[in-house]
Design a protein around this nucleic acid. Structure first.
Lengths: 111, 111
DNA sequence: GCGTATATGTAGAACTTCTAGGTGTTCTAT
DNA sequence: ATAGAACACCTAGAAGTTCTACATATACGC
């Protein structure tokens, strides 16, 4: 069924996007590329995950969007972090660290 | 909305359950207690998550169940890992390690 | 002119997890 | 004795995320 299809984002997608956007205004397509490159191809963010996520984050007031031209002269929607978005990112990173610590505690309990 | 309601399992639930069951036959209620205790109360596994997950894992052939009496003389359903379940656990742990490494790569890319 | 890469988007399905409810038994404190 | 907490199982339905698949359009290289 899910033999070796896709790599799961396991609820980390929002945090990853926020973290990439925190580096400076960037458009959606480039966010996906960066996440894939930095993660050494572990994450292959499909567009059907990317764009709904961006809209979700914008709706929640964590990102704001603005149409601008890219280097190559095409129109693209550039996203930037809001103040709330920065706070959200910090909260998600803290929670992620707690989560991985908690999981590590369980996994260390091996035979 | 989700201000400080519940701690997310973020797709780790199956792995955590398999890991706890790997230590030896144990019943559902005790699995939830162990996960909560070992994680120092980070995970508070609600029964509405626990039991469907156990049935799912059993349906997939990763766990097998057997009714037995507990120490205190009550009937409970004891779960044990199947051979497939052990392989699944190993695969999930490997994948989790890759996931956390990939996330760490992204998060390290900070300003 | 054709294919690939760039760039955005939606619809619907699949899956996991949560909330909220239910049943019954054993232990403990009053 | 009995009330309430802890033990032990369960389901239904809602909510949320992520996926597959599709759709559109522009720029670039050959």
């Amino acid at each position: 069924m899910n033999n070796e299809k896709s790599e799961f984002l396991k609820g980390t997608l929002d945090m990853l996007i926020l973290n990439v956007v925190a580096l400076g205004p960037i458009h959606g397509y480039a966010i996906a590329q960066r996440i894939q490159q930095i993660s050494r191809d572990f994450f292959k963010l499909p567009q059907g995950s990317l764009y709904p996520a961006l809209h979700r984050l914008e709706d929640r007031g964590w990102l704001k969007a603005q149409w601008k031209a890219t280097d190559t002269g095409r129109d693209a929607k550039f996203y930037a972090l809001t103040r709330q978005g920065r706070k959200q990112l910090e909260a998600e990173v803290r929670n992620w660290e707690q989560l991985t610590n908690a999981v590590a505690l369980i996994l260390r309990t091996a035979e």
